[in-house]
Deep mutational scan, measured.
Amino acid sequence: TTQFTVHSPEQAEQWKEYAKQKGLEVHVQKKNGTWHVTIH
């Protein structure tokens, strides 16, 4: 599991796309103005 924080919805979307291409599961949670992205 990879977990990191991004600071814009655009970055979060890019990671979603990346994960989809790799066939991975991605979870994005918005918290205090940042987005926590978890890739399984």
Results as ranks from 00 to 15, higher is better:
33 G>E: 07
36 H>S: 08
19 A>E: 01
22 K>Q: 11
20 K>A: 09
23 G>V: 02
2 T>P: 04
4 F>P: 02
3 Q>T: 14
8 S>I: 03
13 E>F: 08
39 I>V: 05
14 Q>L: 13
8 S>N: 06
33 G>M: 05
27 H>N: 08
8 S>Y: 06
3 Q>D: 06
32 N>A: 06
18 Y>K: 03
16 K>H: 05
18 Y>N: 02
5 T>L: 10
6 V>F: 06
33 G>I: 02
4 F>K: 03
20 K>H: 09
15 W>Q: 01
7 H>G: 11
28 V>F: 07
21 Q>W: 10
40 H>S: 13
37 V>K: 01
20 K>P: 01
5 T>I: 14
4 F>D: 01
28 V>N: 00
9 P>Y: 15
29 Q>K: 10
40 H>V: 14
12 A>T: 03
39 I>R: 00
16 K>Q: 09
34 T>V: 15
19 A>F: 11
12 A>D: 01
23 G>R: 04
1 T>S: 10
30 K>G: 06
36 H>V: 15
2 T>S: 10
9 P>Q: 15
16 K>E: 08
9 P>N: 11
22 K>R: 14
5 T>N: 06
26 V>M: 06
14 Q>S: 09
12 A>N: 02
14 Q>A: 14
37 V>F: 05
20 K>N: 08
25 E>T: 12
7 H>I: 08
7 H>Y: 14
29 Q>E: 14
38 T>P: 00
6 V>H: 02
18 Y>C: 08
6 V>E: 02
31 K>P: 01
28 V>R: 01
25 E>C: 14
40 H>T: 12
31 K>S: 09
2 T>I: 15
19 A>W: 06
12 A>M: 07
26 V>A: 07
17 E>W: 10
28 V>Q: 01
1 T>A: 10
30 K>Q: 13
9 P>F: 15
32 N>T: 03
1 T>P: 10
39 I>H: 00
40 H>M: 13
5 T>M: 10
1 T>V: 14
11 Q>C: 14
17 E>F: 09
33 G>V: 02
23 G>Q: 05
39 I>K: 00
26 V>Q: 01
19 A>V: 03
28 V>M: 04
16 K>W: 08
26 V>K: 00
30 K>I: 13
9 P>E: 15
4 F>H: 04
22 K>N: 13
6 V>K: 01
6 V>G: 02
